[in-house]
């Protein structure tokens, strides 16, 4: 501290004893508490500030978020499994038949042959109705001598038709020659599928097959559609389905709601675990330091 001397002329009064009050130093800045000082230093560090913002955002997201995004994180919807993020998808309203009975033709004479690789393919192999994400119904005409059928599903069809079964997977094995139809509900996505059918005798599989393609549309059952929409909906209409901004998980649960819910748990753990560290760490370290020095 240098004292500035501006006076050039002195008077005797300058040399009297100063009062105690005058000699007190003046503080040049307002007094800061420890935490105020910490905060000022903290603000100067860009990395720290950004990190704090992230933490505040996460806290707000997981603790305040559920008050804005009011969706039950455990609500399942098996018709909308593993959807990607979107702000609303359109779906065709269809009549949802929950009937799982086998489709049979009891009048057909079922006489399975042994070991005949030359039994033909069904004459007709066709999709019934609109193939949708709720189900693809396939019918075929029965083959004489068949003991059953293999139905393949493939997501791409190769140029070489002989390879149809090489690309696909057996989606259903029919073990009765009387069955003439089947509804595929196995994990159907709104895309193109190719189905192939091969007849089987008891010991061998035929070399002939029939294929049919299905352009699957996204669909919603009429009952589910009615609960989602305020207006009266009819079969055949297109409606906008409930929104899942971050998509859904393996049971069709809303990812955003689950993220908030899971984030809450993670943050609570993230806060309590370091607290425990600090408690035991300082206790143990402090004690051992104290004991060694003593």
């Amino acid at each position: 501290m240098s004292v500035e001397t501006t006076k050039t002329q002195f008077s005797p009064s300058d040399f009297t004893a100063a009062s105690r009050k005058d000699s007190l130093q003046q503080l040049s800045r307002p007094s800061l508490s420890y935490w105020e000082d910490v905060w000022i230093r903290f603000k100067k560090n860009r990395q720290a500030t950004v990190s704090l913002c992230v933490v505040v955002f996460l806290l707000a997201f997981s603790f305040l978020g559920p008050f804005i995004w009011i969706v039950e994180p455990s609500q399942q919807n098996l018709n909308r499994i593993s959807e990607g993020p979107s702000l609303g998808r359109m779906a065709l309203v269809v009549d949802e038949s929950s009937d799982e009975q086998t489709i049979e033709d009891p009048s057909f004479l079922y006489l399975p042959e042994h070991d005949n690789p030359n039994i033909g393919a069904p004459e007709k192999f066709e999709i019934i109705g609109t193939p949708s994400t709720l189900g693809v119904e396939i019918h075929w005409t029965p083959v004489e001598g068949a003991a059953g059928y293999l139905i393949y599903r493939s997501e791409k069809v190769s140029e070489n038709l002989e390879a149809i079964s090489d690309n696909g997977v057996v989606i259903k094995e029919i073990t009765s020659g009387n069955e003439i139809g089947f509804v595929d509900r196995f994990d159907i996505q709104p895309r193109n599928y190719w189905y192939a059918i091969v007849a089987k005798s008891i010991d061998t599989t035929s070399t002939q097959y029939k294929i049919v393609s299905a352009k699957v549309v996204r669909a919603i059952g009429i009952e589910a559609a009615q609960t989602e929409s305020k207006n009266l909906v009819k079969v055949g209409e297109m409606i906008k389905m409930s929104v899942h901004p971050l998509g859904t998980d393996y049971l069709g649960r809303d990812m955003l709601a689950r993220l908030m819910y899971g984030g809450r748990i993670s943050l609570i753990i993230g806060i309590f675990v370091p607290l425990i560290y600090i408690l035991f760490g300082t206790l143990y370290g402090g004690l051992s330091g104290y004991l060694v020095d003593a």
Partner: peptide
């Protein structure tokens, strides 16, 4: 059982079961 096989397990090959005795 069918829904579980088709959607929850989602691996072709599994058949829904309605009895203890397999096919």
């Amino acid at each position: 059982a069918k829904e579980v096989v088709d959607k929850v397990i989602a691996l072709p090959g599994n058949e829904p079961a309605y009895t203890l005795f397999p096919k």
